[in-house]
Lab assay of single mutants.
Amino acid sequence: HNLTITQGKLFFHYNPKLCLSEIHKMEEVSGTKGRQERNDIALKTNGDQASCENELLKFSYIRTSFDKILLRWEPYWPPDFRDLLGFMLFYKEAPYQNVTEFDGQDACGSNSWTVVDIDPPLRSNDPKSQNHPGWLMRGLKPWTQYAIFVKTLVTFSDERRTYGAKSDIIYVQTDATNPSVPLDPISVSNSSSQIILKWKPPSDPNGNITHYLVFWERQAEDSELFELDYCLKGLKLPSRTWSPPFESEDSQKHNQSEYEDSAGECCSCPKTDSQILKELEESSFRKTFEDYLHNVVFVPRKTSSGTGAEDPRPSRKRRSLGDVGNVTVAVPTVAAFPNTSSTSVPTSPEEHRPFEKVVNKESLVISGLRHFTGYRIELQACNQDTPEERCSVAAYVSARTMPEAKADDIVGPVTHEIFENNVVHLMWQEPKEPNGLIVLYEVSYRRYGDEELHLCVSRKHFALERGCRLRGLSPGNYSVRIRATSLAGNGSWTEPTYFYVTDYLDVPSNIA
C-alpha cells in the first residue's frame, strides 16, 4: 500500500525493539523526510534493546553428524571492536523451508527459537588472519532439518551509529543413524509349514526405512522333555500350542467401542483428552525405555581390526524358502538304536541362519518350516543398504507352526516275539517326523474274553527296548493296539495285532 503524509511529521519514542533503520525507511515511504526535528525521533529510546544489523554474515563451514552440527561463519568486528559482546545463534526444527525470524513471537518477546549466546573469538592483530567464530550444536535429532541463523550482539553506541551483522536463515539436516526397533511384532501360524509375521514401523526411523531383515531359527525343545518319565503317576503330560491366527481386521481397528449394538453396526467412541494424553505418555515412556535398553543392555560386537582377528559373527547367506525346513542338525536320541526319531534339535552355532529381506511392506510369510516346531524370529529395521547396512537392534518374537495331521501315527506293522515265561516283546517304529517329539506310547492289549488293559511306555523305555515287553501273560489269544502321544496330543491307534500265548508248562520236552 502507498502511504503519503502531505502535512505533519513523524514522532517515535520509547520503541526499544524498533531499529532506527526501520524508522528511516518509514520517513522515505511516507514522504516526511526532512520535516522531523532532532528530538522527534529519539536516538536513545528507539532500538536500544534490539540488534540492528546492516551487514550480512556468511557461514564459512558446515559439518553434520547424526546428532551434531558444527558451524563456522566469517569474522565480524565493528569499528570499535570492544562493542562486540558476542553472537546469538538461533535454531529450531523446520520440516519445511518457510521459516521466518519472527515465527511464534508474542507480545512478551518470546519466540519459538532456541538461542545460544556465543563469546567472540580472540581478536588477531592481523586483519587478514582473524579467527572464524563458530559453535557445535549438540543433542539434535537424527535425520531432522533445522533452520539456523546467527547475528551479532553489540553494545549501545553513544554516537548512535547503527552497526551489526546478521546471516540469512539456512537449512541444515542432520545425518541418518540406526533406527529404533520395529514396533509390535506379531507372529502367527496359518499352516503346519508357515508363519505369518506382521509389525509396525519404528517410532524413530532416523532416516528413510529402506528394508527390513527377518531372521528365523528353529528352537530346540526343553531338555526336561527328553529326561522326564511322563508315565509316572502324578506327572502331567506336557503340551505345546501353536500360535493362533490373526483376529479379523475389524476387531483390530483402534479407537473402536468394545460393545456392539445388537441391531447392527455401531460407531466408534472418540477417545477423551485424558485417554489420548495417557497414550502419549505411555508411548514416550516406551521410547525412553527402549533407548535405555539399547544403550545399557546391548553391547556392540567388536569388529575385526587390522591384526587379522576374525569377526566372530557368522556370515549372512541367503537361502531359498524351500530350504528352511531342514535348518537344524538332527541327532538321534540314543545312538545305539537307529530307529528312534531325530527330534532332539541342538543347533550348531556355526550354522548360517536363513533370512529374508523385506522391502516396502511390514509383513512376511515364512514358508518351508517344520510342522509343530518353535521358531525364534528376529526382526531388524534398516535405513541404508549400501555401502553397508545400517540397521536397528533386533526385536524378537516366537511362534510355533501348526501340527501336521497323521504325523504322530505309527507307520509300519507292530511285530512281536514270544519268549519263555510268557513274555512277549512288542516292537514298532517311532514316527519319523512327529509333531514336536514323542513323549510316550500307549499300549492297549486284551486277552479274548477279558477286559482291555493299558500300559504306558516312556520315551526312554522305548529307546532301550525298541518297544516294550509284556510279562506274566496268561495263555490265550491276544490283540494289541499302540498309539503315540506327542507334544500336540495323541496320534491314531494302530491296526490290531494278534498273537497267541501258550502255557509254557505244557511245552513238550526233548528229553527222552
Results as ranks from 00 to 15, higher is better:
residue 203 S to F: 10
residue 205 P to W: 08
residue 208 N to V: 15
residue 209 I to E: 09
residue 209 I to N: 12
residue 209 I to D: 07
residue 210 T to H: 04
residue 211 H to W: 15
residue 214 V to S: 04
residue 218 R to G: 12
residue 218 R to F: 02
residue 221 E to N: 08
residue 223 S to D: 14
residue 225 L to M: 06
residue 226 F to Y: 08
residue 227 E to F: 10
residue 229 D to F: 04
residue 231 C to W: 03
residue 232 L to G: 12
residue 233 K to E: 13
residue 234 G to M: 10
residue 235 L to I: 14
residue 235 L to Y: 06
residue 235 L to C: 10
residue 238 P to C: 15
residue 242 W to T: 06
residue 242 W to I: 02
residue 244 P to Q: 15
residue 246 F to W: 13
residue 246 F to H: 12
residue 255 N to P: 11
residue 256 Q to D: 13
residue 256 Q to H: 04
residue 256 Q to F: 09
residue 256 Q to C: 04
residue 258 E to L: 11
residue 258 E to D: 10
residue 258 E to N: 15
residue 259 Y to H: 05
residue 260 E to M: 12
residue 261 D to V: 11
residue 264 G to H: 09
residue 266 C to V: 08
residue 269 C to Q: 04
residue 271 K to I: 06
residue 272 T to Y: 04
residue 272 T to P: 04
residue 272 T to W: 06
residue 278 K to R: 08
residue 279 E to L: 11
residue 279 E to C: 01
residue 283 S to Y: 11
residue 288 T to N: 05
residue 288 T to A: 14
residue 296 V to I: 04
residue 300 P to G: 05
residue 301 R to E: 01
residue 302 K to F: 04
residue 304 S to P: 13
residue 306 G to D: 12
residue 306 G to R: 12
residue 306 G to P: 14
residue 309 A to H: 14
residue 312 P to T: 13
residue 314 P to I: 03
residue 314 P to Y: 14
residue 320 S to E: 12
residue 321 L to W: 09
residue 323 D to V: 06
residue 323 D to W: 09
residue 329 V to L: 09
residue 329 V to F: 14
residue 329 V to A: 01
residue 330 A to D: 04
residue 332 P to Y: 06
residue 334 V to P: 11
residue 335 A to L: 13
residue 340 T to L: 10
residue 341 S to F: 12
residue 342 S to I: 04
residue 345 V to C: 13
residue 351 E to R: 12
residue 353 R to G: 15
residue 354 P to M: 14
residue 354 P to S: 12
residue 355 F to R: 06
residue 356 E to N: 11
residue 358 V to F: 11
residue 360 N to H: 14
residue 366 I to D: 10
residue 366 I to P: 00
residue 368 G to Q: 10
residue 368 G to C: 11
residue 369 L to W: 02
residue 372 F to P: 01
residue 376 R to I: 07
residue 376 R to H: 07
residue 381 A to V: 06
residue 386 T to N: 10
residue 387 P to M: 14
residue 388 E to T: 05
residue 391 C to P: 01
residue 393 V to L: 02
residue 394 A to E: 15
residue 396 Y to V: 03
residue 399 A to K: 15
residue 400 R to I: 07
residue 402 M to S: 13
residue 402 M to P: 09
residue 402 M to C: 12
residue 403 P to G: 03
residue 404 E to V: 14
residue 404 E to I: 10
residue 406 K to A: 12
residue 406 K to R: 08
residue 407 A to D: 03
residue 407 A to K: 04
residue 412 G to S: 13
residue 412 G to L: 10
residue 417 E to P: 04
residue 419 F to Y: 14
residue 423 V to T: 14
residue 427 M to G: 11
residue 430 E to M: 15
residue 432 K to S: 13
residue 433 E to L: 13
residue 435 N to M: 01
residue 436 G to L: 11
residue 437 L to I: 11
residue 438 I to N: 04
residue 438 I to R: 02
residue 438 I to P: 02
residue 439 V to I: 10
residue 449 G to I: 11
residue 450 D to L: 08
residue 451 E to K: 13
residue 452 E to K: 05
residue 457 V to F: 00
residue 457 V to T: 03
residue 460 K to G: 10
residue 461 H to R: 12
residue 464 L to R: 14
residue 467 G to K: 10
residue 471 R to F: 11
residue 472 G to V: 13
residue 472 G to P: 07
residue 472 G to Q: 06
residue 476 G to E: 01
residue 478 Y to L: 01
residue 479 S to I: 11
residue 480 V to G: 05
residue 482 I to H: 01
residue 484 A to S: 11
residue 486 S to W: 00
residue 487 L to H: 01
residue 490 N to V: 05
residue 494 T to Q: 01
residue 498 Y to K: 12
residue 499 F to T: 00
residue 500 Y to K: 11
residue 500 Y to F: 13
residue 500 Y to T: 10
residue 500 Y to V: 12
residue 504 Y to M: 06
residue 506 D to F: 15
residue 508 P to K: 14
